[in-house]
Amino acid sequence: MQRRDFVKILFAASALVLVPIRAFAAMWNSPAFESTKLNSALSGLGISEIKESKQITIIAPDKAENGAVVQIEVKSEIANSESFAILVENNPTPLIAHFVFGEGADPYIVTRIKMAETSDVQAIIKVGNQYFSAKKRVEVLENGCG
């Protein structure tokens, strides 16, 4: 085998490894969702090392009149984004939602969440074995978890 061919094969093999595995869980992750601390919710999701990314956009109000209904929009421009975890650190249970995008679905969601008090809304995006994150502060004037 020539050195050039070997390098080609090496590239081809690494491309295979980089193809995201689109796995739907189909079972509710109770350890993560029932966690009352951000860190334990993250470990329930198997998330450890997180890097900040400017390729993630979170659109949410700066101030929310009513914490019971806060609309958030999350978009990732990172190639091969597989899933979003949405967390609100100061909520009684910080993990709000986990979205998995299969082939044919763009890494984009809009939803409405409850916020107990002023907090960061954090989105963590899974890309292969890596996790990227962005945060948006939302000031809550009236709490929504009552």
């Binding site: 739907f24 869980a25 189909a26 509710w28 992750n29 969702f33 019971a68 209904v69 806060v70 609100v88 909520n91 249970t93 993990l95 709000i96 939602a97 986990h98 979205f99 998995v100 995008f101 299969g102 082939e103 044919g104 679905a105 969601i109 939803t111 409405r112 969440i113 409850k114 916020m115 929504g144």
Partner: peptide, 14 residues
Amino acid sequence: KQVFEAQWGTGISK
């Protein structure tokens, strides 16, 4: 064919 999955906690609005 399945294209999308969401898991929700209690923090999604009514």
